[in-house]
Simulated scan of single mutants.
Amino acid sequence: MVKRKIGLVGFGHVGQYLYEFITSRDNLEIAFVWNRTRSVLEDAAVPKHLILESLEDFESHTLNRKCDLIIEVAHPSITKTYGMRFLKHADYMIGSPTALADEDVETGLRELATEGAHGLYIPVGALWGAEDIRRLADAGTLHSLCITMTKHPAAFRLSGRLDELNQTAVESQTATVLYDGGIRALCGLAPNNVNTMAAAAVAAHNLGFDKVRGRLIADPAAEGWHIIRVEATGSKLTNGTQLSVVTERRNPAETGAVTGSATYASFASSVLSAHGKGPGFHIC
């Protein structure tokens, strides 16, 4: 059996889960693991020969241990700095697709993924109906898309005005709308919390980051849950009617957790799907 060799960038909760998943599979193998803090890898007993000291060295490392897929589950800054380099050497799965809200980053990666030898994969994460959204976008019949994410205030990692509003929700113990608008700006304000929205913008490529609407709500009553509501409409028909779809996903989550419990398994499924689709942008 030929094993797919995978480079793992990031060893937080999701990275650790994927490491265990990959090492448990007969058809997958770890090529390297990188984490900003090496001691975390050592504490987890990751074999020394798999630890990549610096991402600057990944090219020389992959010459010795061929890498089929590189997975980022660290921070959107990784894609901005290394995404193009990764994609020149292997398929690349972006676990923090908020990085694509930077137009230059998205344009550069799309061009390379289209013209190069490798594919770029976007995991659906907590997004429900991603494939249906993509099909509507492919047909040019997706008219609007709104993603509403409701979480307990402790689940957010925010700054500036959004953090102030989040504290207001805590103090008042009432649901508070932190943001309502195009998701391009939101990705920069809450890069750790809205990867689901970024994945939706990639799937809804005829609308993109500016026209897909994002609503972020802090609700103290949402303890134990991440609630994601997806509202999509199709183009109006000649008789004035249009397709309308509304879904709500209630993802169990420990209070304060950035990632919902069911999303881990979704990432594992994406790893298995991120294979064999060739060049281009792929939802997985």
Score class of each variant (00 low, 15 high):
S60F: 07
L127V: 07
I30E: 10
L145S: 07
M1S: 08
D68S: 02
F32R: 12
E53Q: 08
R65Y: 04
Q173I: 07
T247V: 13
V73Q: 01
G83H: 04
A169S: 15
E115G: 01
I283M: 13
E56M: 01
S172W: 10
I30C: 09
E171Q: 12
G188Q: 08
M197S: 07
M84R: 14
G234V: 03
T238H: 08
V124G: 01
D180F: 11
S144K: 12
K80D: 09
L165I: 10
G214N: 10
C284V: 15
Y264P: 02
D219Q: 05
L69V: 09
R161S: 13
V246Q: 02
M197Y: 05
Y179C: 01
E254D: 14
G95V: 06
R157S: 13
G83E: 03
A200P: 02
A74R: 03
D26A: 14
T247E: 14
G160R: 10
P252L: 11
D138E: 14
D43C: 00
V194A: 06
T196H: 12
I183T: 10
M149K: 08
E56W: 02
T81I: 11
A221G: 12
F32W: 14
G160Q: 11
A199T: 15
L18R: 02
G278A: 11
A126M: 12
S172G: 00
A113N: 05
L55Y: 11
A198I: 00
M84E: 05
G280R: 15
G140H: 04
R135D: 15
Q16E: 14
Y19A: 01
A201C: 07
L142H: 05
S270P: 01
V124W: 07
H61G: 00
A169Y: 05
L165C: 08
S266F: 05
T81K: 14
L216G: 03
P97F: 02
E223F: 00
R215I: 15
L41A: 07
A44C: 11
R25W: 05
G12V: 06
H275A: 11
G125F: 06
E254M: 04
A185K: 15
L162H: 04
D102C: 06
V40P: 01
Q242K: 10
E59T: 04
K88E: 12
I51P: 01
E56T: 04
A185M: 09
V124I: 14
R157Q: 12
D26S: 13
S96G: 00
G278P: 02
E248H: 01
E42S: 14
G10Q: 09
